[in-house]
Amino acid sequence: MTGTDHTTADGAALRDDVASLVPGARALDQHAWECIFRQLHPRLSAYAGRSLDRESAQDAVSEAMTRAVDRIDTFTWDDSAFEGWLFGILRNVVRDTQRAHARSAPRAATQFERPGHEPSDGILAREEAAEITAAFARLSPSEREILELRVVAGLTADEIAITLGKRPGAIRTAQSRALAKLRNLMETTS
């Protein structure tokens, strides 16, 4: 599973699967919640792992699911809203965790094992990844957040708008500007 799964047909099928589970989740069907958790856990963990260490990221995902169950009555039904709503909860949990860690001791973000990069991929692939990661680190926090939600969490522009509480048009514009800036940074670096 990679962060770009939702740009494929498999990602769309997974989104449909989650959407079909939402009515059961609203009815507090435990099996529906377990299925949602199992299907979204990789993306939730990947997104949380961008800001938290491994253990804290897992705790944040679990806390986000617990809060989602508690607040399911406040969720307004929309076919494309559930994942944006759930990632919005996770975003708040991650922020709370970061504040708590800032008061104690700073922790490094999770360095999960990167899939799909076998040694046979070669040095070029690794160099390209390093180049784009370095350019990505020079973006502003808000630009990085939008792109992380896009490629790590696998959300659409509409879902990112729900997560961040902004208008979809503003998200599309901000994403386009962030990509243009990233492209310029990569060209400058190279």
């Binding site: 599973m1 990679t2 962060g3 770009t4 740009t7 507090l28 435990q30 919640w33 377990e34 958790f37 199992r38 856990h41 990789p42 963990s45 990947a46 792992g49 961008r50 491994r54 990221a57 897992q58 995902v61 679990s62 699911m65 617990t66 169950v69 508690d70 399911i72 999770t110 360095q111 999960f112 094992e113 990167r114 899939p115 799909g116 390209e128 990844a129 784009i132 990661t133 990505f136 792109l147 992380e148 896009r150 490629v151 790590v152 990509l179 990233l182």
Partner: peptide, 30 residues
């Protein structure tokens, strides 16, 4: 976007049993 996703992609661990237990407890409480 595809290149960025590949560069940032990670393989997160599978959810542990404790996470499922916590979820089941939350559903019962709700």
């Amino acid at each position: 976007l595809s290149r960025l996703g590949a560069a940032l992609a990670v393989a997160p661990p599978e959810p542990d049993a404790a996470a499922f237990d916590a979820l089941a407890g939350a559903v019962r409480a709700k």
